[in-house]
Simulated assay, not measured.
Amino acid sequence: MPRTNPGQFVRQVRQEIGKVSWPSRKETGISTVMVFIMVFLASMFFLLVDFLMGEGVKLIFGLGG
């Protein structure tokens, strides 16, 4: 693989960055909101599962109550 000089490397990097399709501000906002919603739903799911498993262990072993 032939070596490139630093100037050519920088030009190639700038050329490749120009090919990237960046999301719009609206798309970024929608994606951010969706991530927060999914995190909330996942945390509620695991909270419920943890609670049910804890209650099941208490019921089986008679602990904590």
Rank of each mutant, 00 (worst) to 15 (best):
G64E: 15
G64R: 15
M53I: 14
K26F: 10
T32R: 11
L47A: 15
Q8V: 13
R25I: 14
D50V: 06
G56I: 02
F40I: 09
T32N: 05
F45C: 08
P6F: 05
A42M: 13
V39R: 04
S21E: 14
I37Y: 03
V35T: 10
L48H: 12
P2E: 13
M38P: 00
G7S: 08
F61D: 10
V10I: 12
V13G: 00
D50M: 12
S31Q: 08
M38H: 02
R3N: 13
F61R: 11
E16G: 00
Q15T: 08
G65M: 13
R14Y: 00
G62I: 03
E27G: 03
S24P: 05
M34I: 02
R14K: 09
L48W: 15
V10A: 12
L52Q: 08
L59N: 05
M53A: 11
N5M: 07
V35I: 12
S24C: 00
D50R: 12
V33E: 02
T32V: 02
F51G: 03
E27A: 12
V57A: 05
L63S: 13
P2M: 10
F9D: 07
F46H: 06
T4A: 09
V20E: 04
E16I: 04
V49A: 13
W22I: 12
G62N: 03
V49E: 05
F36M: 08
G64V: 15
K26S: 13
S21F: 06
S31R: 11
L47M: 15
L59T: 10
R11K: 10
E16T: 08
D50T: 15
T4H: 12
R25Y: 09
S24V: 06
V57W: 06
M1L: 14
P23E: 04
P23D: 04
F46P: 02
M53G: 01
W22N: 07
K26R: 13
P2F: 07
I37D: 00
M53P: 00
T4F: 13
K58D: 09
G56M: 06
G7V: 10
V20P: 00
G18W: 03
G54L: 04
Q15M: 01
M34P: 00
F9L: 15
S24T: 15
R3H: 12
G62Y: 04
R3W: 09
F46E: 05
F61A: 12
Q8H: 07
L59S: 04
M53D: 05
G65R: 15
M44W: 11
K19Q: 13
R25C: 07
D50F: 14
M53S: 06
P23Y: 04
K58V: 02
P23A: 03
E55M: 07
S24F: 06
G18L: 01
G56N: 09
K26V: 15
G18F: 04
S43W: 08
L63P: 02
I37K: 07
Q12W: 03
I60N: 04
T28E: 11
N5P: 01
L48D: 10
W22Y: 15
V13Q: 03
E27T: 09
S24K: 07
V49F: 06
G29D: 08
V10G: 00
